[in-house]
Design a protein around this nucleic acid. Structure first.
Lengths: 209, 209
DNA sequence: TGCACTACTTAACGCTGTTAAGTATCTTGA
DNA sequence: TCAAGATACTTAACAGCGTTAAGTAGTGCA
């Protein structure tokens, strides 16, 4: 059906590029091995010469998405090197923007069923965690200058991530009441997330309103 | 294969009960029409006499789950009728406990792919929203006595929900670093969520730590 | 020239959701 | 009492899925 690819890695890239295209166009749910093969101009079984199975293909797409997110994070880090508070807020915005701009990537990266992640290789997992490390670094930097709570940075970073992930996944899945203004929802999420990690004197309840 | 059910609604219940059983045992991913039929002792096509399609079956399970969650919420409401702050915290705990105790239900209810929710009937959607209304009511009651921020209760309730949903979905999907203590993560999530909605004087940053 | 290897193919298995058509059984009306 | 029709279920089939086994060209080398 097709002339042979010039090297071992070529066809793998062809499939990956086609998969990314199909993913963005139709979502991961309708990305099938047969459709992918058709789109790339090869037989379905040839995919298995370059990927162990469909999950491995997804894992490669996840990795791509993680790199994209990390690139966005790195830009923020560079822009706010000396301002941990501003950096953290910008990171929150970058995370949410990434999710809303690339919902298909976000779904594969963070909303894929656990079952498909069981064989996710440890090295990819470690690479993916670098994104969380960027959040943790901002928290640590902010804690060093007294802006953020210094306790358990890993837990704090995960909690922050969870809040952002909750917001993004509800938005992507269109679970929110249509009467909710998305912009207000996002701003409130970010404000609350930041308030959560900010170091505060023991909570003092204002009496009125 | 089977004697006919005594009434129209009977077999529907048989399928629903079997579906709930399979859902809890194997998760929604491996719940197929054929397996369900086999478990119930009927042919696969007979399911279509009682449910329009597989999504409609899921929708019925979602509704069941929503009622369960609401029952838990109602208990909390009754126990903390005069204590909005305590109620909201208890609701957060109830939500997370529900998710972790019934991950299969939680997945169908809140983590099902949007595609499967497209035909979700409006009346079921309204019923499901009663759960969010319980959160909103606690926020409103708390705002009335000055404990919570009074602005935009719907947005506030959704933000709170998003934070809880993020935590539960990451826990269920086992996305958290294994080094993270789940208990600490949950407590931090709840604490931050509550701090987010609490009415405060403009944030005062403590200088040290 | 011929052998081995590589890169790809077709055919097939067992699964999926869903529809069309067929078959018993029960209910009703004359 | 018997036929007609409705009801509740069945089997057969379609098109799709992920995946494996077996087959086939083309390449590089002895």
């Amino acid at each position: 059906m097709q002339p042979r690819a010039s090297s071992d890695t070529d066809l793998r890239r062809v499939f990956l590029d086609a998969a990314r295209h199909l993913l963005v166009r139709d979502g991961y749910k309708s990305l099938s091995m047969r459709k992918l093969a058709r789109a790339a101009g090869y037989s379905a079984t040839s995919i298995y010469l370059h990927f162990e199975n469909k999950d491995a293909l997804f894992h490669a797409l996840i990795e791509e998405g993680m790199e994209r997110l990390l690139a966005a994070f790195r830009e923020v880090e560079a822009a706010y090197a000396d301002d941990p508070e501003g950096r953290l807020e910008a990171l929150c915005r970058a995370y949410i923007r990434f999710g809303l701009d690339s919902p298909e990537y976000y779904e594969v990266m963070f909303m894929l069923h656990p079952e498909h992640m069981e064989r996710y290789p440890a090295d990819k997992f470690r690479r993916a965690r670098r994104n969380l490390d960027v959040l943790a670094a901002a928290l640590a930097d902010g804690a060093a200058c007294g802006a953020f709570c210094a306790a358990e940075p890993r837990v704090l970073a995960s909690t922050l991530w969870a809040a952002l992930h909750g917001a993004v996944s509800l938005l992507i899945a269109r679970r929110l009441d249509v009467r909710i203004d998305a912009e207000a929802f996002i701003e409130t999420t970010i404000a609350h997330a930041l308030r959560g990690v900010r170091s505060v004197a023991p909570a003092r309840t204002a009496p009125g309103v």
